[in-house]
Amino acid sequence: MKKLLRTYLPFTKAVMQGFMAYRMNFYVYILGELFQTVVLIYIWFAIFSSATSEVIQGFTFKQMVGYVVMSTLTSMLIGNEVHWDISQDVKSGRIATNLIKPVNYQLLKFFNCIGNIGINLTFLFLPLWGGYTIFDFISNGVIPNITNGLLYLVSVSLSALILFYINYLFGLAAFFIEYVFGFIFAKEAILKLLSGQLIPLTFFPKGLFNVFKFLPFAGLVYTPTMIYLGKFSEEDLLFNLGVQAVWVLLLMALTQLVWRKAIKRLTILGG
């Protein structure tokens, strides 16, 4: 274990150091992404003022704001750059130098990903979450529930793993297609909807909801957010955590399979 950390921790550190150089840019980008959240909150406000009842699909307006904030924060927290990195590695041929190093490529990317999450946690999640919690306490008198908070940590760890594997798979797509940019954009659009980042999955028609809750995407944002807000019954909680855990294992196996296929296709020009 110690040897493993000594070998791979530098890859985490490298990501963090790279970040420190571009910190300003990072915040400007995040500000752009936060506009979408602001728009969402305004729309929900208009929706709740137009609705006949105070509760829509089990959410009051204040709870919906909580959902929007926590789902945004969750997706920010688990975000990584693994898919872009891998496609860059493949395109530039740099992957060859990675392959001849005595390190495991997937582990290397995993430790990169930990770096991404470390950055997200320190520079985004904690300050924004802290700000929101203080705001929520002052204006609504709400104190976060500790049990829910701890369960959230468990669930969001699984979310981070699921996203790592999904992005790893999409990065490997660079072995098979050239236009990864469009491919990744499409992935992000689908994830946004199916992960519950845009709207709680309960808003979907019952038939669709019953399918979506079995998909790995629900485990990305919807599950941890609902857990944090304490909106799951005990039964729901166990079911959703179970789905997350099963997908982690399935995706882990799938990445190995695709990797084996991908590496066979690799041709590096020149050297």
Binding site: A189, K192, L193, L198, F203
Partner: peptide, 30 residues
Amino acid sequence: SRTDFIIGFLAFFLIQFGGIAFIALVFRQI
């Protein structure tokens, strides 16, 4: 590179689809 064209086309089509789905889902409630 026709596949690139189709992927790009589909990607930006899908991105918009998310927004439309949102509007449609919301209007089931109001």
